[in-house]
Nucleic acid binder design. Structure first.
Length: 561
DNA sequence: GCCGTTTTCGGCCCGACTGTTTTCAGTCG
């Protein structure tokens, strides 16, 4: 039996999951196969080789006895008897669909019915036509279009561990002397389509050969003397480029980009000699920038906006860092849909050396998240007062994530809102309102004197949904006028405000909170994702609400009537 | 089928709202 790549093994597990699902099997069992498949897809080592070496696969998370045995059978025979049996007993439509096991059969079959077709090939053709989207409905059409195109983007948050594993593999297995992440990952762009490394090696050919064995087998797309490009098991592109130590700085600069930044550098006086002189030695980026008579530009700023001009005047912002964060202003507890009690959350915040933690449970209308009733929130105010008397080294702030209702009113009466230290106000319903209506909804909410921070301003979920429409300029102007603030929701699939919107808010003179929206003590770690985003927006410590001490913060959020 | 700082069974979100629906699927956190 020829060696199978991890992806090929995972594909068979996903096919099994799809047919089990279509058959109405236990959904948790179906999910277990999918999780196991995902695990295999991210492993650097060859599962096939591990099986042949007699390794115990149950050591991997999500793989137990049954799935380990299934993988063993796939490796030994190339097949899975259970899968073959299921296929033999499935309809022609399902068998056709089984080569695309990530697609949900129920949704695909519904599309077939609506369009009067029975194969994926027909569906693919039809989806190209305008008009078909209407017939299927926006969501279904989007799902199918995305599902049939090759997945090629990933959250930065998910790509980080992939890149980390690759960096390690490049040095430890491929023999590179060093490997440094570059490109969009280094610039901390929230969604990435490729992972790239600058490596130092005398034998790029050997590195390339070994990389092709990553995850069992990784496809080499193209290669030349100094660089190579691969298609990773996850669908992402991997680019590697080699540079000698004395040219490391230039190599790093060029591979980090962005293209627009490099172009601006080329236009700057003194740029060309530094970048093109073959005899020049620049082991670090700092030396390259210095040679160009520019201040060092942090990677997060290298998007080709005004950073080169600012660097020439030595007027770059001193970007905010994780260490400068003094507290958390958006966190949930078991009072609504969080996983930990208020005290536990507070202890976790104290362990991060925060001075304060705002408890922002969902408000009463958000039933699914067990929104807190008025009576319960009055009670919670007292509970927090008592906790603050007892606990040392952390102050718990009384707050709530208050729903902005469809008409722009807030989800609690004013006297209750007034009993809180501040509020985070968010939209969680009626995403489909038109832009004008949605905008006036938010503006009206901001007119309430108890409105403090707008939570996840656009409601976007990265790679999943675009968010509602909002006239952001008007919202920002209104926030400035009414003394309201924004948050950068640091949840890795939100990062909302975007860097662009955060920059706009900043330019309008509105301070921004960086908030994790933690539903679990571990989620407090998302702060670093919010910091990445804030840095991309060019924000400094002085621009961030939760870089303030509690006395400063209290003053900053107090409304002038 | 997997898992375990309430460990070998029982949980693994889920329940109300909306309208892309036409009798129920998709969606919000």
């Amino acid at each position: 039996m020829a060696m199978l790549s991890n992806v090929e093994i995972a594909q068979r597990l996903r096919s099994l999951a799809q047919l089990l699902g279509a058959q109405g099997a236990n959904p948790f069992k179906v999910k277990a196969y999918r999780i196991a498949a995902d695990t295999l897809t991210t492993l650097p080592e060859s599962v096939d080789e591990r099986v042949r070496a007699g390794a115990d696969l149950t050591q991997y998370p999500g793989i137990g006895k049954a799935i380990a045995a299934a993988i063993g059978e796939i490796v030994q025979t190339g097949n899975l008897q259970q899968l073959e049996t299921l296929r033999a007993n499935s309809s022609a439509e399902l068998v056709d669909l089984n080569d695309h096991p990530h697609l949900d059969p129920k949704r695909v079959l519904r599309a077939y019915k609506k369009l009067g077709i029975s194969t994926l090939a027909e569906l693919r053709r039809k989806l190209a036509d305008a008009g078909v989207r209407e017939k299927l409905g926006f969501r279904l059409a989007q799902y199918l279009t995305q599902g049939l195109s090759e997945k090629q983007a990933m959250l930065l948050f998910d790509a980080d561990p992939v890149a980390q594993a690759l960096g390690k593999y490049l040095v430890e297995t491929c023999g590179a002397r060093r490997a440094e992440s570059t490109g969009t990952m280094r610039r901390r762009v929230e969604i990435v389509a490729e992972i790239s490394f600058l490596i130092e090696t005398d034998r790029l050919d050997e590195v390339v050969a070994k990389l092709q064995r990553y995850g069992g087998r990784t496809e080499l797309v193209k290669a030349d003397e100094n660089r190579a490009e691969f298609k990773l098991p996850t669908g992402l592109r991997l680019k590697i480029e080699s540079a000698p130590a004395r040219k490391w700085g230039v190599g790093l600069l060029v591979t980090t980009g962005a293209e627009a930044h490099l172009q601006k550098l080329n236009e700057a006086p003194g740029a060309l000699p530094a970048l093109t002189d073959p005899k020049a030695s620049y082991p670090t980026e700092a030396e390259v920038y210095r040679a160009m008579r520019l201040a060092y530009i942090e990677p997060e700023l290298r998007e080709g906006r005004d950073e080169v001009t600012l660097a020439a005047r030595d007027a770059l912002p001193d970007l905010v860092t994780l260490r400068e964060i003094r507290g958390e202003l958006h966190a949930h507890s078991t009072s609504s849909d969080g996983a930990h009690g208020i005290e536990e959350m507070a202890e976790a915040a104290r362990a991060k050396s925060y001075q304060y933690l705002g408890i922002t449970d969902h408000s009463q209308s958000l039933r699914i998240a067990r929104g807190v009733s008025e009576e319960a929130l009055w009670e919670q105010v007292k509970v927090i007062d008592r906790l603050n008397e007892r606990m040392r080294g952390i102050r718990i702030l009384k707050s709530a994530e208050v729903d902005i209702l469809a008409d722009g009113s807030l989800d609690y009466p004013d006297d209750l809102l007034a009993a809180l230290d501040y509020t985070v106000c968010s939209i969680h319903s009626r995403f489909a309102l038109g832009k004008a209506e949605q905008t006036s909804r938010v503006l009206r909410a901001m007119d309430n004197p108890h409105f403090t921070i707008l939570g996840h301003a656009t409601g976007r979920l990265l790679l999943r949904r675009p968010g509602y429409e909002l006239e952001m300029e008007r919202v920002i102007a209104h926030a400035k006028e009414r003394g309201c603030f924004f948050e950068i929701n640091a949840s890795p699939d939100r990062l909302d405000l975007s860097a662009e919107h955060a920059r706009m808010a900043h330019e309008a003179g509105v301070k921004i909170a960086i908030s994790t929206d933690a539903h679990h003590i571990n989620d407090l770690e998302f702060m670093r994702c919010g910091i990445d985003q804030a840095r991309r927006a060019g924000l400094e410590k002085a621009d961030i609400l939760n870089c303030l001490t509690w006395p400063q913060l209290r003053k900053a959020i107090r409304k002038v009537a």
